[in-house]
Amino acid sequence: MSTAEHDFDDSPYDLLAADTDEGHRWAFGTGFTDPLEGIDTSVPEGLDPGALVRYCLALGDDALIYSHRLQQWVAALPELEEETAVANIALDLLGQARLLLARAGGIVGQTEDQLAFFRSEHEFRNVRLAEHADRDFAELVVRLLLFSTWRLSLFSSLSSCADPVLAAIAAKGVNELAYHRDYAASWVVRLGDGTPLSHAKTQAALDALWPLAGELLRPDPDAPADVFDHSVFDHGAFDAVIDSVLATATLDRPTSAPLAPVAGKTGRDGVHTEAMGYILAELQSVARAHPDATW
């Protein structure tokens, strides 16, 4: 490639190789900058800061835990193209998690790292769907379809909500989630409307995951009314997209009941499935063993 026509004072690659940030690396520990650096993060008057924190934690935890589950697939996917796709989706969700945890943390005086690595299981507010371990590729794409359809619909509503920071994070996420949903939907159609074997596996994945989808549509009691009026969330739009994909994929919409709350509590209340402990052990153990480590 030709660089002659560029007006850089040195080769762009040399410039990148130069250590311009005092040895800090993009990893846990030092070197992290606040992803909301320079943004006005004051909470608008009239908004309950506590409720806003809990709501941002819920959406941030969904993204963090879901991203972790997708990262576990990397290097185990059937094709290179799926590797890059799943890794990219995981990265987008991790980015959303960083912004949302930084939004919550900024209000309570904690960093995104403290929230991600030093909270206990019962303090995580993610839905139980996010922590599910996909048993095969069919579960991966069906789960992603349910999650990204819901999240895209929600983020579209939130991009005009009363908190300008959350609104900006949501508006940014909309473009990303639209790509995630298209990716998942196209695979669900290919597999569902594919061979008898792929159809059977995809239907089985859908049947297995359906009970976990119910929690997505439960109203979050912590959602501040003025941030997110539940009447804004369009359940009909969620159903319409899911029904259209399932019909094209020749899959039957399950009729099974949502996974029941435990003593009235779900993931949003900090009650998780057995899988969650294993996720947090992997996610948090290094940070907890070396809380002051720097790279």
Partner: peptide
């Protein structure tokens, strides 16, 4: 940022 998770933001700020 181009994408929420764009890891280049930090490099860009340093550069």
């Amino acid at each position: 940022p181009t994408y929420s998770g764009c890891p280049a933001m930090r490099e860009i700020a340093a550069d």
